[in-house]
Design a protein around this nucleic acid. Structure first.
Lengths: 112, 112
DNA sequence: TGTATGCGCAACCATCGGTTGCATATAAGG
DNA sequence: CCTTATATGCAACCGATGGTTGCGCATACA
């Protein structure tokens, strides 16, 4: 069932800003709420909330370093999320194909 | 840029309930707000709102039939959405792979 | 004609992404 | 040591949105 995906993971990765955060963290290796907010059009607090969400679903992990909190992506977990993403896509793709085939069959039946 | 996807389509398909609605419409061929609400744990009005959203982004089309409004999926448009979905997945997949490769390279460098 | 069914509209509530404001902790300089 | 700058955290608030209930209207059907 395409609806049976781990919905927390999906919704975590469903937000555009969170996707951009993951993007930045992936390319930059790591980052803090402040550093990320300088590269995105939202405030530090918004970023902090998102990092909280991502942390709760295990997509990122934080490590306190002095007065700052450095975040990095949990690549294994992100791989899981991406896999689910593609699996949903694949499911629908397959279903669309099946529907199309059935439609054609019906059409052929009508012609006779 | 993975963030440059047509955000209306993405967010339309991003909602779990809307995904289930599309699911039901796809397998059932068509449906009304009332018929769908009987198969989902939300009220008819919630469904109606979702159908409105899906209609606005062109993922479904309505055809009035007597006193009811029958909806069906626009498969071409859904195919577009699904394609975008997989494209985002693919992008991240590729990026994860690249990161992993770089990490391994660095690791090898350290060993020497 | 009256009753049941399906839809639309409006008000309301909770949640969420986002903001501003303030307090707190740590680093850095005098 | 004391001050200042930087990074975080907490709380209140705002607008959009998914969801609900309640009502009125239209259409099918007895």
């Amino acid at each position: 069932m395409s609806a049976a995906v781990d919905d927390d993971l999906w919704s975590a990765v469903g937000d555009p800003t969170r996707r951009r955060i993951l993007d930045l963290l992936l390319t930059g290796g790591n980052g803090t709420a402040t550093s990320l907010s300088e590269q995105l059009p939202v405030t530090r607090q918004a970023i902090a909330k998102h990092l909280g969400v991502l942390d709760r679903v295990g997509l990122v992990h934080a490590s306190p370093a002095g007065r700052e909190r450095r975040y990095r992506v949990d690549e294994a977990q992100l791989a899981r999320a991406v896999a689910q993403l593609s699996s949903v896509g694949a499911t629908w793709d397959a279903r669309l194909r099946r529907i199309k085939r059935i439609a054609e069959t019906i059409q052929r039946g009508k012609d006779q």
